[in-house]
């Protein structure tokens, strides 16, 4: 999932400060699961904004709506009426959601309430951790299902570096060394031969530099 975190309230308040009619839009997907922008968080945000503005003596009208997915235009259609009535739309979706809202509601100012952090998963209840660097050229079949691109602090493809201490990383001491994890897993599975070939420099042309990437499925197009 895409993991996000609420911006400080002061920052959010400043984004909507000039407006009196705010529409807060949540998303029912990733940000619901990472407890940053689902229905509950939307109601808390709306209440917090009303309290902040009430305290300042500048009451504000806050409408709320949580859509199934902000990143798909058809799910934004039901927002049309509320968006029309609002002066500003505060998206509690990830960065993708914010942009789809801005595209749909071209005449409305759209601002983000969240900082989008990474593609990751639930490490334990209440803890989310990054797992994928979205590089566009997966190497997990060579590394025992442990991604060196994102889990090694230096994204080394032929690690570990000299900074691996007792199985931990020299950049962040509490982080496990990805290459130690890879070695241990491959050894356990009897697949250490996978580490013999030296991997060539990574082709980063599939990664995020060079503008937005697209995936096109002709069979799915209308």
């Amino acid at each position: 999932m895409i993991v996000a975190e609420r911006k400080p309230m002061e920052a959010v308040a400043s984004l909507v400060a000039p407006y009196e009619r705010i529409l807060v839009v949540g998303c029912g997907e990733c940000v619901t699961v990472c407890m940053a922008g689902g229905e509950k968080e939307v109601e808390v945000m709306a209440s917090a904004l009303r309290l902040m503005r009430g305290k300042e003596g500048r009451p504000v009208t806050v409408e709320t709506e949580t859509v199934q997915r902000q990143c798909e235009p058809e799910y934004l259609v039901p927002l049309d009426k509320k968006a029309e009535a609002a002066e500003v739309i505060l998206s509690m979706g990830c960065g993708v959601g914010v942009q789809f809202l801005a595209e749909r509601f071209a005449q409305r100012w759209v601002v983000p309430a969240l900082d989008t952090k990474f593609a990751g998963g639930v490490r334990e209840a209440g803890v989310w951790e990054e797992r994928c660097g979205l590089c566009g050229d997966c190497v997990l079949h060579l590394t025992g299902g442990i991604c060196p691109v994102i889990r090694c602090s230096k994204s080394l493809l032929n690690g570990p570096c000299g900074g691996s201490h007792g199985g931990n990383c020299e950049i962040k001491r509490e982080t496990r060394c990805a290459w130690q994890l890879i070695y241990d897993r491959l050894k356990g599975l009897g697949r250490l031969e996978l580490l013999t070939p030296v991997l060539p420099p990574k082709d980063w042309s599939t990664a995020r530099d060079g503008g937005p990437r697209q995936v096109v499925r002709e069979d799915a197009r209308l």
């Binding site: 917090a48 309290l51 305290k55």
Partner: peptide, 8 residues
């Protein structure tokens, strides 16, 4: 913590 953040 949120109440502190919003100044209440």
């Amino acid at each position: 913590a949120l109440l502190d953040e919003i100044g209440l």
